[in-house]
Amino acid sequence: MLRAYAICVYIFLYLPITMIVFFSFNAGKYAMAWEGFSVFWYGKAFSNPLIMGALRTSVIIALSTAILSAIIGTLTALGLERLKGWLRITFDALIYIAIMVPGIVIGISTLIAFVSVFDLVNPSLAGLGIKLQMGTWAVIAAHVLFNIAVVALLVRARLQGMDRSLVDASEDLYATPLGTFRQVVLPLLAPSILAGFLLAFTFSFEDFIIAYFVSGPDTTLPIYIFSSIRRGVTPEINAVGSVVLLTSFVLLIIAQAVLRRGEKTARAS
């Protein structure tokens, strides 16, 4: 009984996704009428300059987000480790809250914040011929905001599981604090930083809501999909969707594996 129920839930969850992947291999021109297997639409998608442009924008955004989040998030975690008392409790809480804030709220609030900032600085920048506006950089900023919290949380967990005496041992063996950070702390944190990097990339790559608010004239892949769906679902869109799906899926699995391996060495110490 429970088993049947579980199977139903899985079908319900994965049927639409399976359909998308399935029909992306449709030879026919309509999304939902099967006419035989073909990878035609994949070729079509990859030669569509609009799709490739959107893909490029998305990759730039996701990569920048992942790199910045990994660096800032790690530094945040290291900084939090040194805090004590109510200050630490407050900042811990702020990190959790940042993760729980819905995307739409991040989208709207960053939009408002950017608009206010641009209004404030653009008049003085006008003389230099610079005009700040929404676009790729605004999306990166908004994504980084959220993903700092994700990375910080992962790295924090790892830091707390780390044996303090390893740092002592390194300093005892004549390594300076910087040397200890480079040779002991960073390598031990590497799995959690890498996992955070991958999660940030995935999140940023498939985000629609935040990008929708602050991307301005730039088009990311999810935004492209959204706008073309309004013109009807084509196998081409299914193909693009399948690629996004596969990318996210693979990255998440790698992130999981990396974290697992990291925990294994941590436990062994």
Binding site: D163, S165, L166, D168, A169, S170, E171, D172, L173, Y174, A175, T176, P177, G179, Q183, V184, P187, L188, T265, A266, A268, S269
Partner: peptide
């Protein structure tokens, strides 16, 4: 500590898990 000519053996050894035995030994 890193400028004192003494060395310590820790209760739970504190060997670096990400390094080989040889790299642990040569660390200093």
């Amino acid at each position: 500590a890193y400028r004192r000519p003494v060395n310590m053996v820790f209760q739970h050894y504190a060997l670096f898990p990400h390094l080989s035995v040889a790299d642990n030994v040569s660390y200093g």
